[in-house]
Amino acid sequence: MRIAQLQLSVQEETEKNLDGLERMMEQAASEKPDLVTAGEMFTCPYVTEKFPAYAEPEGGRTWQRLSALAAAHHVYLAAGSVPERDEAGRIYNTAYVFDREGRQIAKHRKVHLFDIYLENGDGYRESATLTPGDYFTVFDTEFGRIGVLICFDIRFAEAARIEADCGAKAILVPGAFNMTTGPAHWELSFRMRAVDNQVFMIGTSDARNPDSGYTSWGHSILTDPWGRVVGQMEEQEGYMIHDIDLSMADQIRRQLPILSARRRDLYCIKTGEGVVE
């Protein structure tokens, strides 16, 4: 399975960002990727208060263009994430996945919202405008089953484990770690989740723009089921392409049976009055 990870510079206008996606997909087309990925909120600035203004319904203009691009290039398109507005007016951080014919085959709404307060003064509160998702997401391809998480979701071990338990051999993570969390935890997080669940972890970031309201770390990354970094970009706009074989997950799981050796009978708190899950 050939994966193209597109690390795009985010502009103020949605159409310019979609144009950028289209141009880079055309650049990568000669290498015939099977799956194309992009970063978190790649169609708008990553600024909480701006999300409602950019949000569109499923099936809206952005959705239609993404669907058309998947069909035109005959690829699976996991087009990062975009702000979605539902019928009740709630706003989500949503990742759509389209198949080679442009049909939507999966949709993940970010489950864990990024509300942080760091000692250096950095803070960010997605919950000010976003609603959290309430399910985890996997989808099937001819290569095998793949999961989807979004950025902060990767920090919660249960999220990746649930998707691995549901059969995922690779997990896509559109993300936008910042200049504090990125150097400290970006690579570490992808290697940890890869080792924990014996899966490929595919993290695609936005490119770094020091002049934006939120500065992304960049460094799109691919780690294998043994926890090795297969490839990692720098901070600039561009793309990288790698071939992976999802059967490697099965091979690693046979050699080092972490998942099958789990003691589910003990993974609870036992009290004198019974068992508390």
Rank of each mutant, 00 (worst) to 15 (best):
I3G: 04
L6N: 04
L6W: 01
L8Y: 03
L8M: 12
V10C: 11
G20M: 04
E22F: 01
M25G: 02
E26T: 15
E26W: 02
K32R: 09
D34N: 07
L35F: 11
V36M: 04
M41W: 03
Y54K: 00
A55N: 06
A55C: 07
Q64H: 07
A71R: 12
H73M: 09
H73T: 09
V75I: 12
V75L: 02
G80H: 03
V82I: 14
P83F: 08
R85S: 07
Y92R: 01
D99Q: 00
G102L: 03
A106H: 00
K110E: 13
I116S: 13
I116G: 06
D122R: 12
D122H: 11
Y135T: 15
F136K: 11
I146N: 05
C151K: 05
F152T: 15
F152R: 15
I154A: 12
E163T: 13
V173T: 14
V173E: 11
V173L: 09
G175C: 13
F177M: 13
N178P: 01
P183H: 08
S189E: 12
S189H: 05
R191L: 02
D196G: 05
G203K: 05
N209Q: 10
N209C: 08
G213V: 08
G227V: 06
R228V: 11
V230L: 04
V230S: 00
V230C: 05
M233V: 10
E234N: 12
Q236C: 07
M248G: 02
R254D: 07
R264A: 13
L266E: 10
I269F: 11
V276W: 09
